[in-house]
């Protein structure tokens, strides 16, 4: 902890209210850390969103360039959106096809980025609470991440 602060200073309950009281330094410190974490998580979400959106747009544009009939043919839509539509399902297939420049596979890569963003947010939050020396929340967030990963694993077994 901060060595300059006298030992009996209690942990501030409400950072904002403590701001101009006796423990000003501690209050500001906590406040700054909370703000840093908020900006970090906000940027992470924004970055994930922008990256996945650009990837999906790239894939969509490539699909339309490779298949000029998508803009004229009314039969094509059924092939793309009815049961039995062919698109890669497994991560391996997705990456092989995406490398080959298949538009729909690149779209899926973008969707995977989108799905990964909230999970990454939970993982990053663990470190954020560590940085705030908030042990209870480090535990809570770790348990949430384990439960999330467990439901991923369970889904794989069932699917």
């Amino acid at each position: 902890m901060n060595p300059e602060v006298p030992a009996p200073t209690p942990e501030p309950d409400h950072p904002k209210e403590v701001g101009n009281a006796v423990g000003a330094e501690v209050g500001d410190d906590v406040e700054n850390k909370v703000r840093t974490v908020e900006i970090l998580i906000s940027n992470l979400l924004r970055g994930g969103v922008v990256l996945s959106m650009l990837t999906v747009l790239l894939g969509t544009v490539l699909s339309f360039i490779h298949h000029p009939d998508y803009t004229t043919s009314k039969e094509e839509l059924a092939l793309l959106t009815q049961p039995g539509a062919t698109f890669p399902h497994s991560i391996m297939e997705v990456f092989t096809d995406a490398r080959a420049g298949h538009g729909q596979a690149i779209v899926i890569v973008g969707l995977v980025f989108l799905i990964a963003t909230p999970v990454l947010r939970v993982a990053i939050s663990i470190f954020a609470f560590m940085y705030q020396h908030d042990r209870a929340y480090v535990v809570i967030t770790t348990v949430v991440l384990i439960l999330l990963l467990a439901s991923f694993a369970l889904g794989k077994v069932e699917g």
């Binding site: 793309l80 539509a85 698109f87 799905i115 909230p118 999970v119 939970v122 991923f152 889904g155 069932e158």
Partner: peptide, 21 residues
């Protein structure tokens, strides 16, 4: 988002996320 991400994996593996849609 977190709850949905957990189930998205299942839907993806079942082939129910059609990229064109």
């Amino acid at each position: 988002g977190v709850t949905a991400a957990a189930s998205a994996g299942v839907y993806f593996a079942r082939g129910e996320i059609d990229p064109f849609v």
